[in-house]
Nucleic acid binder design. Structure first.
Lengths: 198, 198
DNA sequence: TTAAAATATTAACAATGTTAATTAAATTTG
DNA sequence: CAAATTTAATTAACATTGTTAATATTTTAA
């Protein structure tokens, strides 16, 4: 029965891939059972043979996007010198990823997910998304004494929450009104938490 | 034609009131044209004689809830000594208001409002909601030299964003998992930003 | 090749927001 | 005060949503 599993996985993959594309391209409001199925090349009812409901499908994408985000940040900070500089650049790249794909931010933080499949695992991925992305750099900074352990953990928490708050207000409430202004505000915030590099 | 206006305002009031009640009681997912109309005692189509669409109705509640929130905070911090103590208590009360009425948090920060009526005004009310609630206490702290102007504005920004981020993760992503834990985390965050009271 | 099982599709339902057509109410006018 | 007209409220209808039940089709087994 190996073929069976393989085929089933393939089928699931088609729907997952379709969902990812729609999410990234048009955001969550464009995701519908019929939309996904069409993009996958099947009838909308077929979807229910492979997924319990549309939420399972949507939230399955979370881990994938988290990996993509990590790669995005790594790529855009590769030539930064390790330490505070790279830490700050990573946070800015994280912010930039979500401004480029606001639909993914919506999925991660704003979508009402009272009822999604892998619950706890998915929730954890989301909640510590920024922490994970910056993990190595935090360790590095603590390693060479830039921050104490408790200092680091305080600042990490401040940034974890503040970055989500900033993105929420900007992407969802248009505050600040322009991207330039928003990025300036983000820089100020990060500087004021991490301290100016000297 | 004074009666006309009066009657129209009354009618609008019935629908607005109904919307407020549903939002507070059951959150935004329970808000529907037919639901509102039933609670208001009219047919669902009547609603369209007084509001362009359901969004106008929903977002009209924002200012009201902001006032209510301010009153809530004032009431719950009335016996705190002015200054840092009262500032911190105000932020905690603000947080508590939204944990008691998560539907209102959803309305303020999480609902996709690409298209609501009084746009800019409503957006500003939301974005500076915490700032407004704490305005007097910030001024007081700056007044007696506890913080410099720039210090205050940095910390104010940090808290503005971080509080929204915390509430988002707690109410929408169940992190931390318990209310007790969440409040502990909130206290830590506020202390680490404002500095311990000595 | 035919019988059985698995899988995909169409049809149907309930709920959503919104608009058009229709009925009821209020107001103005003779 | 009664009839005509304007205003307001309701019912009907449509397009979209997620989901399930009933069919049609394809694949597998004998």
């Amino acid at each position: 029965m190996k073929n069976k599993d393989l085929q089933e996985q393939r089928m699931r993959g088609y729907f997952i891939q379709a969902t990812r594309e729609i999410l990234k391209r048009e955001g969550i409001k464009a995701v519908s059972v019929r939309n996904i199925a069409e993009q996958a090349g099947y009838s909308f009812a077929t979807l229910y043979n492979y997924f319990r409901d549309i939420n399972e499908l949507v939230f399955h994408s979370v881990s994938d996007f988290h990996e993509e985000c990590k790669a995005f940040v790594a790529e855009h900070t590769i030539k930064e010198p390790r330490g505070l500089k790279k830490l700050k650049a990573s946070i800015l790249a994280y912010i930039r990823y979500f401004t480029e794909y606001p639909g993914i931010f919506e999925l991660f933080y704003l979508t009402n997910g009272g009822d999604f499949g892998n619950r706890q695992q998915t929730l954890d991925v989301i909640s510590h998304s920024l922490d994970k992305v910056c993990e190595a750099e935090w360790d590095f900074c603590v390693g060479y004494g830039r921050f104490s352990e408790t200092e680091a953990s305080q600042k990490r928490a401040q940034l974890r929450y503040a970055v989500i708050g900033m993105l929420t207000l900007y992407l969802n409430r248009l505050t600040p009104k322009t991207y330039t202004e928003f990025i300036r505000e983000a820089n100020q915030l990060i500087d004021s938490v991490l301290g100016q590099e000297e």
